[in-house]
């Protein structure tokens, strides 16, 4: 039953490829728009992205190092989220922390997707020795805990954002690679691929222009999930003191807060935890919504 359906679907795809795939995305987009939660989640992601961009370009929160009041001032209208030990604005620190979190998330997700998709597609499409090698490689690679990897990078490059991004990116591509490999194996013998071969399409063309667009929804969902995983990991690493060093990070804010709580200073913890909570939740919700909208198997359910 299922095989007939998919065969039918792929037939359609191969016949009127452009129009049909466009309508798939269109369909996804319109169903996303109908999903209120997804829209809200997406607007939060956008908001964070804009804030991060603004902070990155120095438009907002560039003077986070400035003393704005006494140390540990409680939140008031004057000091929106209170101040930290040096009298710096916690709100600005949280915003600057957003920049770090989004940067790490984006970079990690991009890196992980680039590696995961490339290797997964190659392994699945070519099979044989290449597949064996890549499978061996990722199983071996995935046995390295990311903290170890991070330590290695920190040792070579010094602790900081770059090391965190590299370590997280290089240790998070394996699951996507597995998924893509499996999907490509399923797709490569489908009729639309044979059709592409019949009209003279080479390996590259078949793989990247025909098969990949059909598995790309997985990539998008994964992007969203890797993004929030990276944000969480960055916070944990910075909390432990092996992550971001110079810039404010939510993790470092929580690290400072754990001592400050003893003197009743809760705002730093609250700001960082809330900022992280919202973005992680937004990405998770968005990931779910994307999956609902993009996965052809869930269509109509």
């Amino acid at each position: 039953m299922e095989s007939a359906q998919t065969a039918d679907f792929s037939q359609n795809t191969s016949k009127t490829k452009v129009a049909k795939s466009k309508s798939l995305w269109q369909h996804a987009f319109s169903s996303l728009l109908k999903d209120k939660i997804a829209v809200i989640a997406f607007s939060f992601v956008l908001l964070y992205a804009v804030v991060a961009l603004g902070a990155g370009l120095g438009i907002i929160a560039s003077d986070w190092t400035k003393e704005i009041g006494p140390s540990y001032a409680a939140p008031t209208f004057k000091y929106i989220l209170g101040t930290d030990i040096f009298g710096r604005s916690v709100a600005l620190k949280a915003i600057k922390g957003t920049q770090v979190a989004m940067l790490v998330g984006l970079f990690t997700a991009m890196l992980s997707i680039t590696i995961g998709v490339t290797l997964g597609a190659i392994a699945g499409y070519f099979g044989g020795r290449i597949d064996e090698f890549i499978v061996w490689f990722y199983t071996t690679f995935s046995s390295i805990p990311y903290i170890m990897l991070l330590m290695t990078f920190a040792f070579i490059l010094g602790k900081g954002v770059t090391s965190v991004c590299l370590a997280l990116g290089l240790s998070s591509w394996v699951s996507l690679c597995r998924l893509i490999r499996g999907e490509v194996i399923r797709h490569k013998d489908r009729e639309y691929v044979h059709a592409a071969a019949a009209i003279g399409g080479g390996d590259f063309r078949k793989l990247f222009l025909h098969i990949l667009p059909n598995v790309f929804h997985i990539v998008i969902i994964n992007f969203s999930l890797t993004f929030q995983m990276a944000i969480k990991s960055e916070v944990i690493l910075s909390y432990l003191g092996i992550g971001v060093q110079e810039l404010p990070s939510w993790g470092r804010m929580i690290d400072e807060a754990k001592d400050e709580l003893a003197r009743g200073v809760w705002w730093q913890l609250a700001a960082a935890a809330l900022a992280m909570f919202i973005i992680v939740l937004a990405f998770n919700l968005l990931g779910d919504a994307l999956r609902d909208a993009l996965d052809p198997k869930l269509k109509g359910k």
């Binding site: 190092t65 040096f86 602790k159 060093q245 110079e246 470092r252 690290d255 400072e256």
Partner: peptide, 26 residues
Amino acid sequence: STVARQMGEFFKKQMKEIGINIKVQA
């Protein structure tokens, strides 16, 4: 340790006032 890091940050902040760039390493 958290306190040592704060001290490092404090030092960095103070030196910045006269234009000296400090990199804190724990």
